[in-house]
């Protein structure tokens, strides 16, 4: 399966899951609104240039916004994490980051601890920006913090469930032949 088709299928699946499953299930609590779709951006291949990353993230967010009737809200959060992603990857992989042996970020390619930090920081940023924009008009700072932390915790739980349920076993790519 080519890289492009794999990612297009992923895009569709993540968005449909977000719109028709996560947005539909009764909420655990009013402070908890988990989301999973941005894992699509976290899983994009290393080989993408930063500009493409930003544009794809913008399109992803905007598509979700079409469904949730909040134009720009998720797009803003997605663009933010797509911008931060390359910096995080270069910090978390101290070895020469110019040639990666794997296709895309995963527990296998980054190792579990750095991968956890990678997911944690981007999830926090995504939810932080989302909740901040949503609560700019009203609500107190305490609510903001609780909502951010609880949503992030539940989202992380979901992400690592997905990570364990669907392990992406990738071939180790060496320089000598594929």
């Amino acid at each position: 399966m080519s890289e492009l088709i794999r990612n297009i299928i992923r895009f569709a699946l993540f968005l449909l899951f977000e719109v028709y499953v996560l947005n539909r299930v009764p909420h655990l609590h009013r402070f908890i609104s988990p989301s999973l779709y941005f894992l699509f951006i976290l899983w994009l291949p290393f080989a993408l240039t930063e500009r493409w990353l930003l544009l794809i993230a913008f399109a992803t967010g905007l598509t979700l916004d079409y469904f949730t009737q909040t134009p720009g809200l998720h797009a803003a959060a997605c663009v933010l994490i797509a911008y931060v992603r390359p910096f995080l990857i270069s910090v978390l992989t101290p070895r020469d980051s110019s040639d990666f042996n794997y296709r895309e970020p995963s527990p296998q390619s980054l190792l579990w601890a750095p991968y956890f930090i990678y997911v944690l920081i981007l999830t926090l940023l995504h939810h932080g920006w989302l909740v901040l924009l949503e609560w700019m008009s009203f609500g107190s700072f305490g609510d903001f913090l609780i909502k951010l932390i609880s949503s992030t915790a539940i989202s992380l739980l979901l992400i690592f469930t997905v990570e364990l349920l669907f392990p992406r076993n990738m071939r180790f790519r060496t320089n000598v032949g594929g």
């Binding site: 930063e50 500009r51 930003l54 544009l55 913008f58 967010g61 905007l62 916004d65 909040t70 134009p71 720009g72 809200l73 797009a75 803003a76 663009v79 933010l80 797509a82 911008y83 924009l133």
Partner: peptide, 14 residues
């Protein structure tokens, strides 16, 4: 590019 896309998103939103 990042700034531009952020501004576009926020413009949509508000």
């Amino acid at each position: 590019t990042f700034l531009f896309l952020q501004v576009v998103s926020l413009w949509f939103l508000y």
